[in-house]
Design a protein around this nucleic acid. Sequence first.
DNA 1: AAGTGGTCTAGACCACAAA
DNA 2: TTGTGGTCTAGACCACTTG
Lengths: 241, 241
Amino acid sequence: MDLEAPTQSLHQRILNEIRDRILSGEWPPGFRIPFEHELTAEYGCSRMTVNKALSQLAKAGLIERRRRSGSFVTRPRSQAAVLEIHDIRIEVEALGLPYRYELASRQQRKATREDRERLGASSGGPVLQLDCRHFAGGRPFCFEERLINLAAVPEAAEETFTDIAPGPWLTGRVPWSTAEHAISATEADEVTAQALDLEAGAACLVIERRTWNAERPITHVKLVYPGESHRLVARFTPTEG
Amino acid sequence: MDLEAPTQSLHQRILNEIRDRILSGEWPPGFRIPFEHELTAEYGCSRMTVNKALSQLAKAGLIERRRRSGSFVTRPRSQAAVLEIHDIRIEVEALGLPYRYELASRQQRKATREDRERLGASSGGPVLQLDCRHFAGGRPFCFEERLINLAAVPEAAEETFTDIAPGPWLTGRVPWSTAEHAISATEADEVTAQALDLEAGAACLVIERRTWNAERPITHVKLVYPGESHRLVARFTPTEG
DNA sequence: AAGTGGTCTAGACCACAAA
DNA sequence: TTGTGGTCTAGACCACTTG
């Protein structure tokens, strides 16, 4: 069974063993896991090696570390689903409808306080605001409000975005390491209603997404879909590696 | 400004500076970043410190490391996100509000054609329909319409569900292998509006989830949240463990 | 064969929070 | 005051890959 341990780094092995004890419930939430110096003794290695494993576990959110107190198992995460959010063009074409994109407005400015909040940025800098619409079969399918952090993506200032939507333009050239989605429902205000050819007050599905790379804000986008006509479908199978 | 850098660890500073060079385009995809020993000289630190920064950048996907060759800026990747859907009690408690659960109706019957569609089942059999409400701080937080396939979960017939919500009851005893989520927005009909203490027509966020185990339908649930008050937040980091 | 990154050591000093 | 984690050093050996 476990005789085949060809090559696994020690800190990875320590990480795996602790992670398994946590996920199996052997070390429940709130449990204080052994101190670094205890693990050092248990594994017969230096403190750096143990520290590397524990630091990664803390970053993954499985444990919480407190000076002077030790490291504690955090509350377990519940269901996790893999939600693939496709490019809107692909969404539309998957419905068998012709796709069209239209830029409604483009504005470059120094980040306001509100912009910084949208981006999740601490410091200000130049930003690019884009409003655009995506059509499916001649009818409005999605209204997009996009904010791009020009400090992180300066080339965006040179792009007109009249022929390519900001989404595919960004994914084609900027990597990201973290994304946060917020999904909610709202009633269409007048601007949105007009953009989507709806009556004011109609239910809309709102998807907001923030993207970072290595803790640096890249972009914030708010996508508004007519509520009844759009379903966001996610299918997943729990995997473990 | 940037004068306020009271305490930032050196490896974090190295990480930030390299990340910024990459994101700004100064170091484009394919660019070979300086070797560890060069950065060691540049920052006047030990190799471990440089290595910590570079390892994290590699884990974040910003660079790729190859022995003997060096480290290279990677090309951007495509998108896929992990959506965490919490147990409702945990959702509520995370808001710091007292949680309460209430069963509104319970009905056992032979599956109708509509039931089979909801479950994604081909054959009929006994099902259990549960309508319930979840409260946060005394106010309706979520209206749940649940259908359980009794052929797959016969013990559910013995459970009253007056003291425990179907969600946690199921997750505590029935494993699942596949789930499908559909998220949409809708206007509250009269029943929903009354259940959630809203005006008819108010925007609501709807989450529908089907669960199977080894291709056997387990349950279907429709969760309706007041749209403005609820946000479904998902945070994703493409790491590897 | 040579040079890179991957890993690890056996120390060290410091910041921080609990006792 | 004490003990924890956070960080860093100045080495070291090894695996891998390219020249």
